[in-house]
Amino acid sequence: MSRAALLLCQVLVAVVVLALWQVFTTVPLFGRILLPPFFFSNPIDVFSQIINWFASGVIWKHLAITLWESILAFVIGSALGILVGFWFARQPRVAAVFDPYVKMTNALPRVVLAPIFALWFGLGIWSKVALGVTLVFFIVFFNVYQGVKEVSTTVLDNGRMLGMSERQLMRHVYWPSALSWMFSSLHTSVGFAVVGAVVGEYLGAAAGLGYLIQQAEGVFDVAGVFAGMFVLSAFVILIDMAVTVVERRLLVWRPAAAREA
């Protein structure tokens, strides 16, 4: 399929879905409306809500808050993940001691931490950042740990034979290997940073996309809920595209096949 044809088909799917949605929620078929508008709203209301948000400019504040929380969660979570990942990989004994606790913490569904974080850090951005950090941390941690452990022994021996000290091995061998593993999970970790922020907002906040959706839901404004969902999807797609650009630059040295995986 050519690019144009593909794009046409993709647009067609959206048009058909939106048209069906509009028809089922507004036009009576067989004597009744199939999807009650109270629960399903309709595309026109949803889009006028979105346009309204952008026209009045209220949305920008919420987007900015969610973006900021996501960035903080990603940066802090990654930094901690790298630090601990390196530490555990280089100190197998420490790793062995903490292993069951790491597994236990990771097994915990992070949502249950949200109320605790709200208590500890208040309703501001930091409780959301904390939630995102707990999600991002484990992904980065596992990947960095793996990256340090999985360095090819031949490459390592080569570094040693070329005269590298422990510090130089760290910089020229372990670090790039760990980063490559971390970058290969960049989409997941960035995605989780956003999830942490939005879920945190949804469970208690004064601003952000999650808060917007929760508010709309609170007053049974279904159009508002859908509008919030669409804005959130677009937001995530934009971030994901940015990640792809960054990834392309950082992982140029990897064969294309491995990069796709």
Binding site: T154, V155, D157, N158, G163, H172, P176, W253
Partner: peptide
């Protein structure tokens, strides 16, 4: 000793020239 390994031993994240230069840089 300088050792040319049987298996691939270049640093995959460095370009050819960086792979060669590293021996001097360290």
């Amino acid at each position: 000793a300088g050792y040319l390994f049987q298996a691939d031993a270049l640093f995959p994240w460095k370009t050819a020239i960086d792979n060669v230069a590293i021996g001097l840089e360290i």
